[in-house]
């Protein structure tokens, strides 16, 4: 793992991160890309669901919920 990068699901609610690495392959990767989770996309963490997973993210003007299973494979650099 590169320096300063954290998995998306660890990014605290209310903060933002920039996508640096997507460690998924195949169809799931395609799905993530189609959602707009491409390299250097800014993602804001909106809120967790009542049981803490999934989490709602603000991605390119849309709100998308992802389970930590997928979000943990996406590495982001926190943005201030």
């Amino acid at each position: 793992m590169s320096q300063g990068l954290i998995p998306l699901h660890r990014l605290p609610v209310g903060s933002r991160g920039r996508v640096r690495q997507i460690n998924i392959t195949g169809a799931v990767r395609r799905r993530m890309l189609d959602l707009g989770l491409t390299f250097s996309t800014e993602v804001a963490v909106l809120q967790k669901s009542p049981s803490g997973d999934p989490t709602a993210y603000f991605i390119r003007g849309a709100v998308v919920a992802l389970r930590s299973q997928e979000a943990s494979q996406i590495l982001v650099a926190p943005v201030d």
Binding site: V28, R31, M32, L35, P54, A56, A62, V63, V64, A65, L66, R67, Q69, E70
Partner: peptide, 11 residues
Amino acid sequence: FSSTFALELPP
């Protein structure tokens, strides 16, 4: 196991 889950929450 459960597969990918990506759910859009529309406005």
